[in-house]
Design a protein around this nucleic acid. Structure first.
Lengths: 282, 282
DNA sequence: GACAAGTGTTACGATATTTGAAACAACAAG
DNA sequence: CTTGTTGTTTCAAATATCGTAACACTTGTC
């Protein structure tokens, strides 16, 4: 409780943060590179193809500019054209990810425990790491059929509006937490305010009970549980989460059975010595 | 046999291809975007961190330029700094890949058959697609421990110097094959010549016997078998491959037992109707 | 068939972005 | 305290990028 209040105070302080210089076109950043990356980031699981003009419209760019950038991206092998002339991501883009996957070998050791949790909860189980103002799933266990989205490494979501994200936030302390919250507030002003209390409560819950829950905060029909695992030696913050379709998740079961069991599983995973434990666990 | 000769002839023709205009700085390509992407592509499973000056040295760029590009990449969330100040890929880069994974749902249907092959062969089994002048693994089954590299989606390799790549090449016919070979020859002039005969033989083998084999052509200590599956509706060419440590792979077993079995498995996978079958299977 | 509206690409000149040199601070090694 | 790194920033010069315009195509309508 008092933890929650403390956080909310830090929160309020985070109101006065660096507005100056941010909205002006940062002359130290390469705008061309940004545009190219923004094109790649446009694609998602719902929209896997784009016409040139559609890209131009969404990013507010000239058609000619998009044409040249896409040509470059194709030349580099990250974009392809399908039979109808639309742009698609080329499989080669997976090659950029591989070094990250290869660097996180500890994932493989957690597959066993994750499977157990998946069976116990009859849900999806995921491993997420913090990356900037998002979490990124790096390992998933689950049935691709029973869910609307396909559980795969690479799914990203908001830190402040999801169980995984909040468990990750609970791993931060002091200045670092302060900075991250300021960043989030800056990036999503309205959303941040809406979810501030829930986020604070979830962070406190992670510290006190070892897990937090979210009822559709991110994906409307998914109830999620998450527990902070800790930090790897190379500085990645990791959380373990579990997702259930809403209709199958009774609140009292989630809070009094599943949650504690997930926290328990996290505890035994921490015994493996992969992670530097959260600061609040002595 | 005659097929192999035909290919070799096409090969020879491929000698006279567009040298002009290629080496000059293509004014239609965005150089800044290319530099940024080259920075990201620098990382691999062996080298997962770089100092600013090291990047500058490898890409022949000014330190100041690299500083600005990396700042941009960090701003976009694809690069991070570790505690020692080195640049690393940020997990968020996985997010770029997810749309590709989500678009290839058929992968999941093949996990079962792939498991069977893995048990049968006691090796790694992978699903690879063609992307530009490389193959990219999109699904892997196997033991991360028994191999020097970690089997994961995102591993890329050469088309002309690997079993997977050659099986993929065997899916091309006519002009398309011609063009692809020309592209490969242009990009790897010396390597291409060295492996030309093996590549031609492997492509012929895929047509005749339904599989091809490679004894360390790509990874020195790995013997690989591969079979072409076909083409998906959205134009991705797919091959199914199997890798074994060399010491465990007796050549006669590979050629007379494992190979035919892999080809057989491919045949039954093709019955699932996911792929447009190779042109040479009427 | 002819027309109109839309798309994607290529020139080309103007302009704005990027570039490299130089200076700086930080740091490590001698 | 040097000396040699490294990473960042500034600034003017230069170059690469941008938008306009024109082109060839496609698509759909009448």
């Amino acid at each position: 409780m008092s933890d929650g209040k403390t956080i909310l105070n830090e929160w309020a302080d985070a109101g006065e943060c660096e507005l100056p210089g941010e909205n002006a076109t940062d002359q130290a950043l390469s705008s061309t590179l940004m545009k190219g990356l923004e094109i790649l980031a446009l694609f998602n699981d719902q929209e896997d193809r784009f016409a040139n003009s559609e890209i131009a419209r969404r990013l507010g760019l000239n058609r000619a500019t998009v044409s040249r950038l896409c040509k470059t991206l194709m030349h580099m092998g990250y974009l392809r054209r399908d039979t109808k002339g639309n742009f698609r991501l080329a499989p080669r883009i997976l090659g950029l990810s591989y070094p990250v996957l290869a660097a996180t070998r500890w994932r493989h050791q957690l597959v066993g425990p994750m499977r157990e949790i998946a069976e116990m909860s009859t849900g999806n189980v995921t491993l997420a790491v913090m990356s900037g103002d998002q979490f990124v799933q790096v390992q998933t266990i689950g049935d691709p059929i029973s869910f609307p989205h396909i559980p795969e490494p690479g799914i990203t979501g908001p830190l402040h509006r999801s169980a995984s994200g909040r468990a990750l936030l609970s791993l931060l302390e002091g200045q670092e937490l302060y900075d991250k919250l300021a960043e989030l507030r800056l990036r999503f002003p309205e959303e941040f305010a809406t979810h501030a209390e829930d986020t604070a409560a979830s962070i406190a819950r992670c510290r006190d009970a070892g897990f937090c829950s979210s009822y559709g905060d991110w994906r409307p029909n998914i109830v999620a549980l998450s527990t902070p695992l800790g930090e790897t030696e190379d500085g990645l913050r990791v959380a373990l989460s579990c997702g259930l379709p809403r209709f199958r998740a009774r609140e009292d079961v989630v809070e009094n059975d599943l949650g504690p069991r997930l926290a328990e599983a996290a505890k035994s995973i921490r015994m493996m010595g992969i992670f530097k434990p959260p600061y609040f666990l002595n």
